[in-house]
Computed example of a mutant assay.
Amino acid sequence: MVIDTRRGPTFTVRGTEILKLAGGDEVQVRLTTPAIDRLAPYLRECGQVQACPDPAWVAVRMDAEPDLDLLFALTSVAIKEHVA
């Protein structure tokens, strides 16, 4: 579900915010800490993904069309992490 908040639109799954616009060319994705730990070797190699202060979130810099594919993949992981 997409919700329009004071900070801008967010995407939620079962009431949990999993995707939000962080401003400029950055989107933040709530993957959960266990998912980030599993994906850590790949995320470290990806220059488009950065850690966020909250360890359950990552920031994805959107510079080019392939970044959209990365965002879709990470959003899919986030959805799976938040749906029983």
Results as ranks from 00 to 15, higher is better:
50 Q>M: 06
3 I>M: 09
14 R>Q: 10
53 P>Q: 10
68 L>I: 14
61 R>Q: 08
78 A>V: 06
52 C>S: 14
36 I>C: 00
9 P>F: 10
4 D>Q: 11
59 A>K: 15
60 V>W: 04
29 V>S: 00
25 D>I: 13
69 D>W: 14
83 V>R: 04
45 E>I: 14
35 A>V: 09
19 L>N: 02
38 R>F: 10
20 K>V: 13
47 G>Q: 08
17 E>H: 06
31 L>W: 03
75 T>P: 07
34 P>C: 01
62 M>R: 07
62 M>E: 04
68 L>G: 07
23 G>E: 08
31 L>P: 01
64 A>Q: 15
70 L>M: 03
72 F>P: 01
62 M>Q: 05
60 V>E: 00
37 D>N: 11
45 E>P: 07
83 V>Y: 02
73 A>P: 00
83 V>W: 01
37 D>M: 15
61 R>F: 10
7 R>N: 11
27 V>F: 13
1 M>V: 10
76 S>I: 01
26 E>W: 12
69 D>F: 12
40 A>G: 10
30 R>D: 01
21 L>E: 09
3 I>K: 09
23 G>M: 09
26 E>S: 09
56 A>M: 05
58 V>H: 00
27 V>G: 03
79 I>A: 02
79 I>Q: 04
75 T>R: 05
23 G>Y: 07
35 A>P: 08
57 W>T: 02
34 P>Y: 02
22 A>L: 12
42 Y>F: 14
23 G>N: 04
44 R>H: 11
45 E>W: 07
60 V>Y: 02
30 R>L: 08
57 W>Y: 06
50 Q>V: 10
61 R>M: 10
5 T>H: 03
2 V>A: 05
28 Q>M: 05
34 P>R: 08
56 A>P: 05
44 R>C: 08
51 A>H: 04
31 L>S: 09
76 S>Q: 11
17 E>T: 13
1 M>C: 04
74 L>K: 03
19 L>I: 14
46 C>P: 09
36 I>T: 03
8 G>C: 13
41 P>D: 06
66 P>F: 08
4 D>F: 13
20 K>C: 05
13 V>L: 04
2 V>Q: 11
70 L>Y: 02
24 G>Q: 06
